[in-house]
């Protein structure tokens, strides 16, 4: 007899506490991703921001490995934000999807589709589900503490108290 298998969300890193504890796949070896469910009153680094930041070292500008940075030892929170499907549709056009997939993998989600979902329509019910998941991933999933490493020069940047620090030591400026 076939039993109903609950649908696994493809886009989000986790959905709720239960989802976290049921997760079978452990985070990748470099990542000890800790997950907490809190409403923070500070502004944490949002997942979407990882798609817009690269290594600051000048000589890395020409390298394809300087973006996205590699995320490890991240403490993640989920902050409830107003759902705005139009925002997600507009931002999708601006996103480098390969980088979304890579960073999601760094944070322990291996199940993102390899191709960017396109032509999503907030009116269509099927698309709504995807847009909701993307909303959870892109803006509600936030990093409080962690490391960002350039895959080219291996410089390590830190995220502390919700603020990512991209300043370089003088010898790298």
């Amino acid at each position: 007899m076939r039993t109903a298998v609950p649908a696994v969300p493809q886009y989000i890193i986790w959905r709720d506490e239960r989802k976290i504890s049921n997760r079978n796949t452990p985070p990748t070896t470099q990542t000890q991703t800790q997950i907490a469910h809190k409403k923070y009153n500070t502004r944490n680094m949002k997942f979407i921001t990882t798609n817009f930041v690269k290594c600051a070292v000048k000589t890395c500008d020409s390298s394809v490995d300087a973006f996205p940075l590699q995320y490890s030892d991240c403490q993640i929170v989920q902050e409830e934000l107003e759902y705005n499907p139009e925002f997600i549709v507009h931002m999708l056009e601006r996103l480098e999807w390969n980088a979304v997939v890579k960073v999601a993998r760094d944070l322990g989600n291996e199940s993102l589709p390899p191709v960017k979902p396109e032509g999503l329509d907030p009116i269509m019910e099927d698309d709504q589900v995807i847009l909701r998941d993307l909303h959870t991933l892109l803006v509600e999933t936030q990093i409080v503490e962690g490391k960002m490493v350039c895959r080219n020069c291996e410089h390590i940047y830190f995220i502390k108290n919700s603020i990512p620090n991209f300043l370089l030591p003088p010898h790298l400026c």
């Binding site: 902050e79 803006v139 300043l167 370089l168």
Partner: peptide, 10 residues
Amino acid sequence: FNTFDVLQMS
């Protein structure tokens, strides 16, 4: 809709 991030950066 707090899509507002602070980045320590030059």
